[in-house]
């Protein structure tokens, strides 16, 4: 009698166990990716191709800016953070306090911050110093940099954007001019410059289709380079940066599979396809 009871209990437990395991396998694993707007197109492309190959893994990609992505990583609302800048020490300290880790940084693509101009603009190249003067408000007229006598209209990103931070730290090196119009996303910056003959904007290289790209040179004596695969790879283009993925802990499971695939030749081929530059 006891043996029968034990067998029944074992059978019930096995059924429950198998159901739980099957349920776990039947439900697709979900990975959330949040952060840089610059990287949204690339991240969506990666997710789309990867999900076709791995139907049991679901990847949800959203933008919002690098700052938003890092906050989401710290508060636990995303698995992967996309960031077009490095995490700051303050952000690392917050991660330490909550998760007792320093986070894992994965450079996954290279980008050249491109300066957009209206196609009719006479100005075709600028130095880093001139860009700094323009965006900090010291130069306000195109005439000062070889253009027509017209007021310069500045377009830029919001302060939650990694591109905003990178451009400020590496090009402007001062506060942005008060009249710089901030827009939510690089696509909006490109559209604004397309419509404004006196406009100037900046953003990721992947968004430069259908707009005039301004060549950039380190200083007055240097050669001006456009942001291309060759100039960015060879570091000739002066405003290049890495694009990063951040995770809280050393990746494992589906997240590791996804990141490994991104860094594989297949994932890196998509980087080029979208308009950025591979790291491998």
């Amino acid at each position: 009698m006891n043996l029968i009871k034990i067998k029944r209990i074992a059978a019930i437990l096995s059924i429950i166990g198998i159901s739980v395991i099957s349920f776990a396998f039947m439900n697709p694993v979900k990975i959330t990716v949040k952060g840089s707007d610059t990287m949204v197109i690339l991240a969506q492309k990666w997710a789309e191709v990867f999900m076709k190959k791995n139907p049991n893994i679901s990847i949800q990609v959203t933008g919002g800016g690098s700052g938003v992505g890092v906050s989401a990583l710290i508060n636990g609302s995303t698995d992967i953070c996309n960031s077009s800048r490095k995490m700051s020490q303050t952000e690392i300290d917050k991660l330490k306090a909550r998760y007792n880790t320093l986070g894992i940084e994965i450079p996954c693509a290279k980008d050249g911050i491109t300066v957009y101009l209206h196609p009719t603009n006479k100005v075709k190249e600028l130095t880093i110093k001139q860009l700094s003067d323009i965006y900090s408000g010291r130069i306000t007229n195109w005439k000062s940099v070889g253009g027509v006598d017209a007021e310069i209209k500045l377009y830029g990103r919001e302060n939650s954007s990694g591109t905003y931070v990178f451009f400020k730290d590496n090009v402007v090196k001062a506060d942005y001019a008060a009249n710089c119009q901030t827009l939510p996303g690089t696509a909006a910056v490109v559209n604004a410059v397309k419509k404004d003959i006196n406009g100037i904007g900046y953003g990721g290289a992947a968004y430069s289709t259908g707009i005039e790209i301004c060549k950039v040179k380190k200083d007055a004596k240097s050669i001006a380079y456009a942001a291309t695969a060759e100039t960015i790879k060879s570091n000739q283009y002066p405003i290049t940066r890495y694009l990063y993925m951040y995770v809280r802990n050393r990746p494992s499971g589906a997240i590791k599979t996804y990141i490994d695939w991104i860094l594989s030749s297949e994932g890196q081929a998509l980087v080029t396809q979208v308009g950025y530059f591979p790291v491998r």
Partner: peptide, 12 residues
């Protein structure tokens, strides 16, 4: 001192 290690999740 503060030592942080990524061992099966965060540890310090």
């Amino acid at each position: 001192f503060q030592f942080f290690a990524d061992v099966l999740g965060g540890m310090s």
